[in-house]
Design a binder for these strands. Sequence first.
DNA 1: CAGCTTTATTGATCAGCATCAAAGAATAGA
DNA 2: TCTATTCTTTGATGCTGATCAATAAAGCTG
Lengths: 234, 234
Amino acid sequence: MDHCSTCVVRNRAICAALGTDEVSLLGKMGRHHKLVAGQTLIWEGEDSLLVANVIDGILKLSTSMSDGREQIVGVVYPSDFIGRPFGSQTQYNVTALTDAHVCTFSSSDFDRFAREHPDLEHKLLERTLAELDRTRRWLLLLGRMTASEKIANFLIDMSERLIRPDCSFNGPANAFDLPFGRQQIADILGLTIETVSRRLNDFKAQGLIAVPSRRRIEILDRDGLETVAENASQ
Amino acid sequence: MDHCSTCVVRNRAICAALGTDEVSLLGKMGRHHKLVAGQTLIWEGEDSLLVANVIDGILKLSTSMSDGREQIVGVVYPSDFIGRPFGSQTQYNVTALTDAHVCTFSSSDFDRFAREHPDLEHKLLERTLAELDRTRRWLLLLGRMTASEKIANFLIDMSERLIRPDCSFNGPANAFDLPFGRQQIADILGLTIETVSRRLNDFKAQGLIAVPSRRRIEILDRDGLETVAENASQ
DNA sequence: CAGCTTTATTGATCAGCATCAAAGAATAGA
DNA sequence: TCTATTCTTTGATGCTGATCAATAAAGCTG
């Protein structure tokens, strides 16, 4: 059966690089998967057997140390691509943060197909370059920013990314639900859960944000938040 | 004139994806540049006008905050590719750490040429994926490791990468010259120069390394260093 | 090789964030 | 609805790494 013709991310995922015939060819190699929140699709260090497109839901990419310290190294949304093509290992865990739907392919099938379809590889290249840019900016955040700066930048970043569901981008959202708990925010920012909680409350006290429920954030003073994000001292 | 036929990185740079005719075609679009140590080739945020291959020398990619805090987000070696194809801006500075030779192309020329040569794009994709993996591992280092762990990992990483000049990889080197001063090490690891200096001396006192001159490192006890790298407490 | 500049080391102190601990909400399940 | 569990907040304390400051060593230049 051909899921692709009804796929909601058909025109946003890398599949958009393909014509109708080619999509159905790729579609024959793909398999739908349902993931429940918390379920891990790919384990760090395991032989890289599959890659996937995210159809629905949000997933995290994470690595951890032997004593349990964890760092989230990426977050993927509907239409994003998951996995490590042309490589023998995936170096991070891929875990669903919400219930999710993904369309998986065997790595070897996908690699072969991609090599035969330059437009697909090109789309993949553009995505990978953009992700590299994003990841490099995160290095500055992790290496050089204070806790307040990290959290302010995180909130601004989220306000710009979390409007995806309806796809139409009309400026950053000032109210949104985070797909993360406090511990996950800490794992993204290289902080502890306590520090995240405290700084978030500081922002609330300063009137920069409101936190009507655990995961909901309302930005009340975006300029103020941006000032903190640039330089906590000013 | 055709530099490519005598280019020392001809078979290691992305150009290796091309046949003789195509290389000379690309070569006609390229220009040689000499850079002196400290010279900046591309500025953060500037319109992305050029990309390049590194022929000789070592360069850093860095971003900084308005108050001067800096984070090095990448280091490139001979045969590596520099710049942001298919994008309007380069998000980081590219600065020579040593005197260097690069082969530059106008972004638009390169983009056009690449789109016409899938094998070249494929090489670029493989490099970009590998660089993304490396950068993501660095997130764990910056976000979750202690100063000692950071420095131990850094030294091990350097011992594995700095043997490039002669190209033949026969295991990690136990003695090498860093292409960085202490401040640059600090900017790579998200530390201060003082902390780098102190931890390096600790390692010396523990007999893990020797530092015969400022930039020279000799690993005396690799296992010990690896133990520190994994988990400072053990 | 003298004098200057840059870079690195060493020491003292401080602050930010982590850690440890406990109480308080929210959520889920019976 | 009540209870058990999980997640979050809040408080007290301590440590790691930053900051400030001064000295020392290494490179440069003439």
